[in-house]
Amino acid sequence: MTMTAASTFVLPADLDAFIVGLPKAELHLHIEGSLEPELMFALAARNSVAIPYASVEDVRAAYAFSNLQDFLDIYYAGASVLLVRQDFHDLAMAYFERAHADGVRHAELMFDPQTHTDRGVPFADVIEGLLSAMAEAEARFGITSALILSFLRHLSEEAAFETLAMAEPWLDRIAAVGLDSSEVGHPPAKFERVFAAARAKGLKITAHAGEEGPPAYVHEALDLLNVDRIDHGNRALEDEALVARLVAEEMTLTVCPLSNHKLCVVDDLADHPLDRMLALGLKATINSDDPAYFGGYVADNYRAVAAARGLSREALATCARHSFTGSFLPEAAVAKHLAAIEAFVPES
């Protein structure tokens, strides 16, 4: 039996090995949200940045969130230690090492440039640090990756346009734009024009919708932003017609179980709707969101729902398949990864 550090869930050793070995992609990962307290303290010391915590234990004790905003407050405080290109490289490599251990074959990293450029950190240092780590991860681990430039929705659309302009020299190395930060009170409609501009530049589109925000936000993401996938999407289940539409359009949902529990989107993982989503025909995937803050990386999220909801191996494999078909990879790469899943599952 194996108990994860991220939870109290206990799994049979063979099921744990299946979860780790299952080829998978991670589609909903905020790279700033993978900043572990140990690295936060190391970077604070390296960069002579004062942080409001005396120890790693103090940081972890602060991870008692009652809502999204509580989390965001500490998230932005932690990001203050990220100042130079090497910091972003080290941050991403720490994530890739964990992803490799979890059986991740492809990762699509969301990054929040406004969190850094608003502090005076050059856009170039942020993205070049991430790109160098992505290249190293592919060379060392065989993990392919892509970048998703996320706009902070609590800021203005004008600020988002400014960020898109900053990104212009790197657009050939950015796969998509996204929308994150405080959802309530900041509907997708607020950013309709900047997403249209991004699509015109050839970028894919994704957006957080239906985490804390209502089903109407999911409708707006579909109708106004023309998204290629939905991040979270839990509250779509409150609208039967919306569910039917998501199924018909084969819209991928990037579900984050431990995040949902930590941020009180669900009160108990035993009540998590992931298996209901699958039963309805939704293309749900399993992701870690901000793993340093929410208690686990992607395999921990697979473990959590497997234990809490009794998900079968086939259900877990279905989520892994969705993670590749919902990715921004070329069709040939998707087919290769799907074949790897089919080769793995009968042997397990």
Results as ranks from 00 to 15, higher is better:
E238Q: 14
A137F: 10
A146L: 07
P346I: 00
H154W: 07
L329M: 14
L225Y: 12
A17Y: 00
A292Q: 05
L11I: 10
T115E: 05
G326M: 02
G210I: 07
E136R: 11
S55P: 12
V305C: 00
A54P: 04
L83M: 13
A17C: 00
F191Q: 02
P188T: 01
T206I: 11
N67R: 07
M251K: 13
S312D: 07
V184H: 02
I205L: 10
D125E: 15
P12W: 04
S312G: 01
G281L: 02
S156C: 10
G326C: 03
A50F: 04
A189H: 09
M3A: 07
A61G: 04
L83W: 11
F324N: 03
E347R: 13
C256W: 03
L269T: 01
M1V: 14
P122W: 00
H30R: 01
A308H: 08
A196P: 10
V255K: 01
M3L: 12
H89E: 13
D239F: 10
S48E: 13
A101D: 10
P52A: 03
K204H: 14
G310M: 08
E342R: 11
D16A: 14
A124F: 07
L253H: 06
P37M: 02
G310F: 05
V184M: 03
A221H: 08
R313W: 13
A304Q: 04
H186A: 02
H116Q: 06
H337R: 07
A99F: 12
A50G: 03
G213Y: 01
A216D: 15
H186R: 02
H186Q: 02
D267M: 05
I143T: 08
A299C: 10
L280T: 03
E240H: 13
T117K: 01
E108S: 10
L152P: 00
A133F: 13
L27I: 09
L155I: 06
L274W: 09
A197Y: 05
A196T: 14
Q114N: 08
I230W: 10
P23G: 00
R98E: 09
N260Y: 09
E108T: 12
L83N: 11
V247L: 06
E342W: 03
K336G: 10
L269C: 03
L11T: 08
A270E: 05
V305G: 03
L82N: 08
F324S: 02
A332R: 14
A343S: 09
L131T: 04
V20T: 14
L109F: 15
